[in-house]
Design a protein around this nucleic acid. Structure first.
Lengths: 246, 246
DNA sequence: CGGTCGGTTGAAGCGCATCAATCCAAGTGG
DNA sequence: CCACTTGGATTGATGCGCTTCAACCGACCG
């Protein structure tokens, strides 16, 4: 499952100039990680930056009493471990068998610093990551279990199909526990919610690690992706409200 | 309240070279926003980047049925609206009366691009922001009401005291509703939790918009800031576990 | 086979939301 | 100065959504 050739096309919305972030990594040897093994742990000295070639990783933090929070899943083409901190902020573990390329952190920084081509690409990635983090905060703060699961399905659907409108079949490489720890729920609630979505005909099971989306519109609705017009009503002249001298 | 001169010292852990991010803004005129007024709305064309000179802002998103999620509070010295997206991802509103400097987005980007001094500073800020976002995800996903409120108090305590160990008196410029929408709770729960913290002698009220911390250690404990040794046990040779071909 | 691991399903309980009343401080106008 | 208002905060009573605990199921494996 989740077997797919690395598609190197189709990344961030940065300008498509010649040297791309992945060409930076392309000379590096590929390392393989079996599912369940860690690439690095939270608190480790942050020695390297990684590019995912194939497979899916989970990135998480642990707090007291063994509570785990998965802050994100990392897909092929994504970078892993980019930060200026000298220790990793989280643990990264392979979900499926994973292939990575690695780059020394300081060398990576140098390359970025010296390349006016690469910099905006990296910057764009960070902004995307930030936007995703904010969406996740919204999900965790205010969405119901059903909305969370529906949102999750849409997120990974878009992830795999590279932003094209979600493919009908969604691969779910991670376990229910992973989903639960990502969505701030328990396994049981995730399971129950999934069966509810199946019962209502929104999705249909496709083995245990995939589903087909039957009613995409309904799914998006359940996810709380309000197509509200409200949101942009006042936008028009908002900035002008500020005292803008000159 | 929240009246304090802008202290321009003591920022990100970036190297303290001569031209700093705030000198970039220092020539810009200062604009004033009364509490409750918006600086920009989610979805507005992202025309400017702002530096907060004085006051506190809230940054939030609205989802269906008027549910609001505050993704962060912005303090003096912070930047606001930094992103490569061409529309703002969130609404920014003044909590208290606020003074800002503004910078055209493209010009800001140019300045950053041409200054090898400024770039790492901006990058460091983004990384800090990302780290904060991850902590917030942990809070929202797995912490109890009491842990959330305690965490919140510590966060803003550190914020105001510029990373020195939290000052005994914590200013809380925002309303309970703001706190609730930041912590993923309701006003009532926030209120109840605060009174509980007061009853247990951890904090003492200081008017409605400030508290004194009586038992800082207890507060940190309640916040779930586990001083676990567990976390770093396995860290030692973690990276070596990877197949690292020279 | 028994054993384990991930997943599903059921029953009971708890933590927080919801609804509603009250309070308090700061205006505001007569 | 005092009634009246208004917005934020507190406190109480009730209910619901999710967690918790526990049993069970199916697939895989030695």
């Amino acid at each position: 499952m989740s077997q797919r050739d690395v598609d190197v096309s189709d990344f961030a919305d940065a300008p498509r100039t010649v040297p791309s972030l992945q060409t930076l990594f392309s000379r590096q040897a590929v390392e393989k990680f079996e599912g369940g093994t860690a690439v690095f742990w939270e608190g480790d000295p942050a020695s390297h930056v990684f590019e995912v070639v194939e497979g899916v990783l989970r990135v998480f933090k642990i707090i007291s009493e063994g509570r785990r929070v998965i802050t994100g899943f990392i897909y092929p083409g994504d970078l892993l471990g980019v930060s200026l901190k000298d220790h990793y902020l989280y643990t990264a573990e392979a979900v499926t068998t994973t292939k990575l390329r690695r780059f020394g952190r300081t060398r990576f920084q140098d390359e970025i610093n010296h390349s006016p081509e690469l910099r905006p690409q990296l910057f764009a990635r960070l902004c995307d990551e930030m936007a995703a983090a904010q969406d996740q905060m919204v999900l965790l703060a205010r969405k119901s279990a059903e909305e969370r699961v529906a949102s999750f399905l849409l997120i990974i659907a878009r992830r795999l199909s590279g932003n094209r409108q979600a493919a009908p079949v969604i691969e779910i490489p991670m376990t229910r526990l992973d989903m639960a720890d990502y969505l701030g729920l328990t396994i049981e609630t995730v399971s129950r919610t999934m069966t509810k979505l199946i019962a209502s005909g929104v999705i249909a099971p496709c083995g245990r690690h995939a589903v087909t989306v039957c009613k995409l519109g309904k799914l998006a609705l359940l996810a709380g992706e309000a197509d509200d017009e409200d949101k942009h009503v006042a936008s028009a002249d908002s900035v002008r409200r500020a005292v803008w001298p000159n």
